[in-house]
Structure formats: structure tokens, C-alpha cells
């Protein structure tokens, strides 16, 4: 007993914490800090990974500035978010409000809403491809039976990105329903009782009591959906390959293509660097706005 203590004090004690955190330190240097600097360094070079690197100054940046396809990809991502975020909030909150009543089978509903959350995006995308197909898609057939003409969910250039946004909303909804449900359960019931005595309508109760109380959850959903939307990749990769007319090309898909189809390592690093800064700025602005409103 005493020997263990002795050894502990005189050999390892000072170094031990560093030994314990060393895997993390090694990891963060190799896979986070070095890559950030290396990425910045690459932005000034032209490199196809095989032949030697070639310093080109700011040419990658001017190319980015004039790259219509990249800005189109950013625009597509923004269109995606414009539908995805409000739809996610309204739909998840409505379902959570329904689940918040005294109901039977709560766990059945929770489980069924949650399945798309845990299943791979690859599965969800393959499934929705069958739902949204033009000629043989299940949705168009259903519409056909109701006498409505086929809709080009994925082939109509103006529609495709919104179809993908609906799919992404569907996939993540189960998680946000649970988050909203937790939020709704924190609202004390006395508030509603007091409001009822004062003669407040359902809508007034929702607007003046529920909404302010679940504000933190709403902002969490906004930030998580924003980050998710900016990472959009596998859905267009499988479903549309970025088409039609590049209308579903996401920024990550474009970076991937520049790097691994055309082997423009310097340029794709520039795109990644710029895009990451953009994401951090947007998320930071959202957080500032939240702090201000609270």
C-alpha cells in the first residue's frame, strides 16, 4: 500500500495527467490543427496530388470569386435551408404538441417517428428516390389515382432541391419532436390554468406562454438544422448527382467533385476553407441573435 503511494508520488504524478491527455493532444495536432494550417497553405497552391505543388498566389481565391457553380451550390444550400428550417420547426412542434396531451401509445409514436433518425441517410435517400420517381414513383401514382397530373419532384429543376429539403426534414423530425416534447414539458401547467382564468384563447396561450418557454429549443433546432443543411452531401450524391441543371448541387458535393473527380486539391481546399469560415460566421450570427433576443 505504502509502496504504491510512494511510486505514484515520485515517478508518475507530474507526468500522469499529460500521459492521460496525450492521445487527445496527438489527435488534435494531427487531425485538427495541422489540417487547418495545411488547408490555408493549400489555398495558395495548385496541386493535383501527383505532380509537385505549384505556388499560384491568390489565383484560387479569384477563381472562387468567379466560380458560378460554387455560388450556385451556396444558393442551393440557402434555398434548402429556407424551406427546411421553418418546416422542421412547424412540423416537429405540432407533432410534439399532439404527443404532449394525455395519450395512449406514446412510446409507439415516439419509436415510429424516430426510426428515420437512426437509419442511414443512404437508406432514406434510396427509399425517397422510389417515392419521388416521375413515372413509377409511389407519390405520383397516388396522385394519379386522385386524378392529379404527375409532378417532377426530382426532375423539375425548380422543385428538386425543395423535394430534398422535405426529405431531410422527414428524416430528422423524430429527434426534434423529442426535443420539443422535453421543452413543452418544462412549461408549468399553472401558467395555462391562470391564463384560462383570464380568458385567454388557445392561440394566445401558445403565443404568450408556450413560445417564450420553448425558445431555447427552437434556437437549438435552428442551429442544428443549419449545420446539417450546410453538410448536405449524400442525398444529392445518390438521388440526383447534383442535377438537374446543377440545381441540387450542394457545396460539399462540389468540394468533393473538385477534389476527387478533378483532383484540384488546392482549389478544393480553398473552397473548403472559405465554406467553413462561412458556416462559422452564420452560426455565430445566429447565436448572437439568440443572445440578443433572450
Amino acid at each position: 500500500m505504502a509502496r504504491g503511494k510512494f511510486r505514484f508520488r515520485f515517478t508518475g504524478k507530474k507526468m500522469l495527467p499529460y500521459l492521460l491527455v496525450s492521445p487527445y493532444l496527438l489527435f488534435v495536432i494531427v487531425f485538427v490543427l495541422f489540417p487547418v494550417f495545411f488547408c490555408f497553405f493549400l489555398t495558395f497552391n495548385k496541386w493535383n496530388i501527383i505532380s509537385p505543388m505549384h505556388f499560384i498566389g491568390l489565383r484560387n481565391y479569384s477563381r472562387l470569386w468567379h466560380d458560378r457553380l460554387f455560388w450556385k451550390a451556396i444558393g442551393n444550400t440557402l434555398k434548402f435551408l429556407l424551406l427546411h428550417i421553418p418546416l422542421q420547426i412547424v412540423a416537429s412542434l405540432s407533432l410534439a404538441a399532439l404527443l404532449n396531451r394525455k395519450i395512449r401509445g406514446l412510446s409507439f409514436f415516439r419509436v415510429s417517428f424516430f426510426i428515420p433518425v437512426i437509419v442511414s441517410g443512404v437508406v432514406v435517400t434510396i427509399l425517397w428516390q422510389q417515392m419521388l420517381g416521375y413515372d413509377a414513383g409511389l407519390l405520383n401514382r397516388l396522385l394519379g389515382k386522385l386524378g392529379i397530373r404527375q409532378i417532377g419532384w426530382l426532375v423539375n429543376p425548380d422543385l428538386a432541391i425543395y423535394s430534398i429539403a422535405v426529405m431531410a426534414t422527414w428524416k430528422n423530425m423524430g429527434l426534434y419532436v423529442i426535443l420539443f416534447l422535453i421543452g413543452l414539458q418544462t412549461v408549468p401547467t399553472q401558467y395555462y390554468e391562470a391564463a384560462k382564468l383570464e380568458g385567454a384563447t388557445r392561440w394566445q396561450q401558445f403565443y404568450h406562454i408556450t413560445l417564450p418557454m420553448i425558445n431555447p429549443t427552437i434556437f437549438m433546432v435552428v442551429i442544428l438544422s443549419t449545420i446539417g443543411g450546410f453538410s448536405l452531401f449524400i442525398e444529392p450524391y445518390i438521388m440526383t448527382g447534383g442535377g438537374p441543371l446543377n440545381q441540387t448541387l450542394s457545396a460539399v458535393l462540389y468540394i468533393y467533385k473538385q477534389a476527387f473527380q478533378y483532383y484540384n486539391m488546392g482549389y478544393s481546399a480553398t473552397l473548403g476553407f472559405f465554406y467553413a469560415l462561412m458556416i462559422m460566421t452564420v452560426v455565430l450570427l445566429q447565436k448572437k441573435l439568440i443572445e440578443k433576443e433572450n
Binding site: 507530474k14 495527467p17 499529460y18 491527455v21 487527445y24 493532444l25 488534435v28 494531427v30 487531425f31 485538427v32 495541422f34 489540417p35 487547418v36 495545411f38 488547408c39 493549400l42 496530388i49 449545420i227 450546410f230 453538410s231 457545396a251 460539399v252 468540394i255 477534389a259 486539391m265 478544393s268 481546399a269 473548403g272 476553407f273 465554406y275 467553413a276 458556416i279 462559422m280 452560426v283
Partner: peptide, 30 residues
């Protein structure tokens, strides 16, 4: 308790908010 503990904590928090798009290409090269 050890020197640098607080710094390591801040580094962890910061790296968590770093988008993966910035490290994707360099990590492939690594």
C-alpha cells in the same frame, strides 16, 4: 490539476465548433 488543463479544455470546445469541411481535404492528404 496540471498546467495547461484550462487551455486544453478551450481547445476541445473550439475544435468542436470547427466545420469538417476545412479538415476534409488535408486529412485525406495525411
Amino acid at each position: 490539476r496540471f498546467k495547461g488543463r484550462q487551455i486544453i479544455f478551450y481547445v476541445i470546445v473550439f475544435t468542436m465548433s470547427l466545420p469538417f469541411q476545412i479538415t476534409l481535404i488535408p486529412n485525406y492528404i495525411t
